[in-house]
Amino acid sequence: EQIEAIAKFDYMGRSPRELSFKKGASLLLYHRASEDWWEGRHNGVDGLIPHQYIVVQD
Results as ranks from 00 to 15, higher is better:
27 L>I: 10
10 D>A: 12
25 A>F: 05
8 K>H: 06
31 H>E: 14
21 F>G: 00
19 L>V: 12
24 G>A: 06
11 Y>T: 02
36 D>S: 12
44 G>W: 04
2 Q>A: 09
41 R>T: 13
53 Y>S: 12
23 K>N: 04
11 Y>H: 07
48 L>C: 09
15 S>R: 08
9 F>P: 01
19 L>K: 00
44 G>Q: 10
42 H>D: 03
18 E>S: 09
10 D>W: 03
10 D>H: 09
47 G>E: 00
35 E>C: 14
51 H>N: 13
39 E>L: 08
46 D>G: 05
28 L>G: 10
57 Q>M: 13
55 V>R: 14
54 I>W: 07
24 G>M: 04
2 Q>H: 14
14 R>P: 04
31 H>A: 10
58 D>P: 05
37 W>Y: 10
43 N>Q: 09
39 E>I: 05
1 E>R: 08
44 G>R: 09
51 H>Y: 05
48 L>P: 02
24 G>R: 04
52 Q>R: 11
29 L>V: 09
32 R>C: 03
44 G>S: 10
52 Q>K: 10
44 G>E: 09
30 Y>I: 15
26 S>L: 15
33 A>V: 07
23 K>F: 05
50 P>V: 01
31 H>P: 01
25 A>Y: 04
40 G>K: 00
31 H>R: 13
56 V>R: 09
35 E>T: 13
28 L>E: 13
43 N>C: 05
41 R>H: 09
57 Q>E: 15
8 K>L: 12
16 P>R: 11
10 D>N: 14
44 G>A: 12
53 Y>E: 10
43 N>A: 12
18 E>M: 03
8 K>C: 06
27 L>A: 01
49 I>G: 00
58 D>T: 03
54 I>S: 02
13 G>A: 13
34 S>L: 05
21 F>M: 05
53 Y>Q: 15
52 Q>V: 06
2 Q>M: 13
20 S>I: 02
52 Q>T: 12
52 Q>Y: 03
51 H>S: 08
23 K>E: 14
12 M>E: 14
45 V>T: 15
15 S>Q: 11
55 V>I: 08
22 K>P: 13
5 A>F: 03
52 Q>S: 11
32 R>P: 06
41 R>K: 06
55 V>C: 07
32 R>L: 09
26 S>R: 04
44 G>F: 08
21 F>P: 01
4 E>N: 15
9 F>D: 15
22 K>H: 12
32 R>H: 04
47 G>Q: 01
43 N>L: 13
34 S>Y: 03
6 I>S: 10
44 G>M: 08
41 R>A: 07
25 A>E: 13
16 P>E: 15
39 E>M: 09
9 F>M: 15
4 E>D: 10
1 E>G: 04
31 H>M: 12
18 E>G: 04
17 R>I: 04
21 F>R: 01
52 Q>F: 12
10 D>K: 08
7 A>R: 00
58 D>Y: 14
28 L>Q: 14
32 R>E: 04
57 Q>F: 09
52 Q>G: 13
3 I>T: 04
24 G>Q: 05
21 F>K: 00
21 F>H: 01
4 E>M: 12
54 I>N: 02
17 R>W: 05
54 I>L: 12
43 N>S: 13
15 S>G: 13
38 W>T: 01
33 A>I: 06
53 Y>G: 13
58 D>G: 09
13 G>K: 11
54 I>R: 01
25 A>W: 04
6 I>T: 08
52 Q>P: 12
13 G>D: 02
7 A>C: 03
5 A>Y: 03
31 H>L: 09
46 D>N: 11
25 A>L: 02
52 Q>D: 10
44 G>P: 01
29 L>I: 15
22 K>R: 11
12 M>F: 15
9 F>L: 14
53 Y>A: 14
16 P>T: 09
49 I>P: 01
11 Y>S: 02
50 P>C: 07
38 W>A: 01
27 L>R: 01
28 L>V: 11
13 G>P: 06
45 V>N: 07
10 D>P: 06
33 A>L: 14
32 R>V: 04
4 E>K: 09
29 L>G: 00
23 K>C: 05
25 A>Q: 11
15 S>T: 12
6 I>D: 04
13 G>W: 03
24 G>V: 00
6 I>F: 12
45 V>F: 03
20 S>P: 03
45 V>Q: 13
33 A>P: 08
39 E>P: 00
49 I>A: 04
7 A>S: 09
35 E>A: 14
47 G>F: 01
27 L>W: 01
48 L>V: 12
6 I>K: 15
41 R>F: 05
55 V>N: 10
11 Y>P: 00
53 Y>C: 12
40 G>H: 01
15 S>M: 10
8 K>I: 08
12 M>I: 12
14 R>C: 15
12 M>K: 05
25 A>N: 15
33 A>Y: 08
5 A>K: 02
12 M>G: 14
29 L>F: 01
14 R>S: 15
14 R>G: 14
13 G>Y: 04
9 F>A: 14
17 R>D: 08
21 F>C: 00
14 R>L: 07
32 R>N: 03
52 Q>N: 14
2 Q>G: 14
24 G>P: 01
36 D>L: 12
54 I>G: 01
48 L>R: 13
2 Q>K: 15
7 A>N: 02
42 H>V: 13
12 M>R: 11
56 V>E: 15
56 V>W: 05
31 H>K: 06
16 P>W: 08
30 Y>E: 06
50 P>N: 04
57 Q>K: 04
15 S>K: 11
58 D>V: 06
32 R>W: 05
19 L>E: 00
22 K>G: 10
3 I>V: 05
50 P>Y: 14
32 R>S: 04
50 P>F: 04
46 D>H: 12
45 V>H: 04
43 N>R: 11
37 W>M: 15
34 S>M: 06
55 V>A: 11
30 Y>S: 12
40 G>Y: 01
12 M>T: 08
3 I>Y: 04
18 E>Y: 11
23 K>L: 08
31 H>Q: 14
48 L>T: 08
36 D>I: 10
18 E>Q: 12
47 G>A: 02
49 I>M: 03
53 Y>N: 03
15 S>P: 08
30 Y>C: 09
15 S>V: 10
30 Y>L: 13
23 K>Y: 08
45 V>E: 15
11 Y>F: 03
14 R>W: 04
36 D>P: 07
3 I>L: 07
21 F>S: 01
36 D>C: 10
21 F>E: 01
21 F>W: 00
38 W>D: 00
22 K>E: 07
13 G>L: 03
31 H>D: 14
24 G>L: 02
28 L>S: 12
25 A>K: 09
52 Q>H: 13
8 K>P: 02
7 A>Q: 00
17 R>T: 08
4 E>R: 10
22 K>M: 11
38 W>H: 04
36 D>W: 09
29 L>M: 05
36 D>A: 10
22 K>A: 11
25 A>D: 07
34 S>W: 04
33 A>K: 05
56 V>Y: 14
25 A>V: 07
36 D>T: 08
51 H>E: 07
44 G>I: 03
44 G>Y: 04
8 K>V: 12
8 K>Q: 10
54 I>D: 02
5 A>N: 02
9 F>H: 14
38 W>G: 01
26 S>F: 15
22 K>C: 05
7 A>V: 02
37 W>L: 08
23 K>W: 03
53 Y>P: 04
13 G>M: 06
42 H>G: 12
51 H>M: 06
7 A>Y: 01
58 D>H: 10
35 E>P: 14
38 W>Y: 05
31 H>Y: 07
34 S>G: 11
31 H>N: 13
24 G>T: 03
43 N>K: 15
39 E>T: 07
53 Y>T: 10
20 S>M: 03
18 E>V: 06
43 N>T: 05
30 Y>G: 07
24 G>F: 06
40 G>A: 06
2 Q>T: 04
2 Q>C: 15
36 D>V: 11
16 P>S: 12
41 R>I: 13
12 M>A: 06
9 F>E: 15
